[in-house]
Design a protein around this nucleic acid. Structure first.
Lengths: 126, 126
DNA sequence: CTTGACCCTGACGCCGACGTCAGGTCCTAG
DNA sequence: CTAGGACCTGACGTCGGCGTCAGGGTCAAG
């Protein structure tokens, strides 16, 4: 049994596998751990082991990074996501982050509008 | 006459005035010039003189920066904005930039949606 | 036993948009 | 004449999210 390449244990992944499945670099994963975004367990040899859920988690990070959040921001959000419950301070923070994202959304929309006027003006004057 | 603090000439501004009106730092303006985003004329003493239109231009830059464009991107856009006409290559570039911004818009919207689910889940479980 | 694929820990490099400090010039007011 | 404010040119510092290199373990296959 255990024919799937070097299975350490069920539902447990080595860093290279997580990287491949999540589509990020090994370096990035080490960085995320360093920033407190991913927890790992170590083998006796010091190799990191991740839970399978890490893959989805990492893709979640990618979305937030792409939206302009920092590791620090994400680190603040995670306890809320994980525990499913929040204190007053955390809720305030969540709403603040949301507001910041709304601001970014408006910025991007405004920029698109500006671009569109340029495009419209120039497309008609070849 | 000429009671308005040190007027050099009509429609011409010194760097500090542009900074104040546009709400950016003097350093930022020098940087924009360095990147080819702003043209200036020099007094005999080497001081920069800007046209009044620089103020609006700088605020335009701020919008684009806020939307995630780089100085290089803006430098590419400017000739189109200024001349009001474009060649095929420039038009392709404009459409590409627009597509990139659309991507960002979607990213931010997705992130907001994720946040909202977290907020919804946690607001109901105090 | 050796090879090769992975894994590890530092630690330095990079890019972009400025901040900041040093050292000097210019100009106007008192 | 002097003081102060605004301007100038380098040039180095910063922060974030990794890339990348150096030097070295681990481990299953041949």
């Amino acid at each position: 049994m255990s024919r799937t390449e070097h299975v350490v244990a069920a539902g447990v992944l080595k860093i290279g596998e997580v990287a491949e499945r999540a589509g990020v670099s090994v370096r990035a994963l080490r960085y995320y751990e360093e920033q407190g975004l991913l927890r790992t367990v170590r083998t006796s040899a010091g190799h990191r082991l991740f839970e399978e859920t890490a893959v989805d988690r990492v893709q979640f990070f990618q979305q937030l990074y792409a939206a302009g959040l920092t590791s620090g921001n994400i680190a603040q959000l995670l306890p809320c996501v994980d525990s499913g419950h929040t204190d007053r301070e955390q809720r305030a923070m969540l709403h603040e982050q949301r507001a910041r994202l709304r601001g970014r959304l408006d910025d991007v929309a405004a920029a698109i509008a500006r671009l569109d006027t340029v495009i419209a003006a120039t497309d008609t004057h070849p």
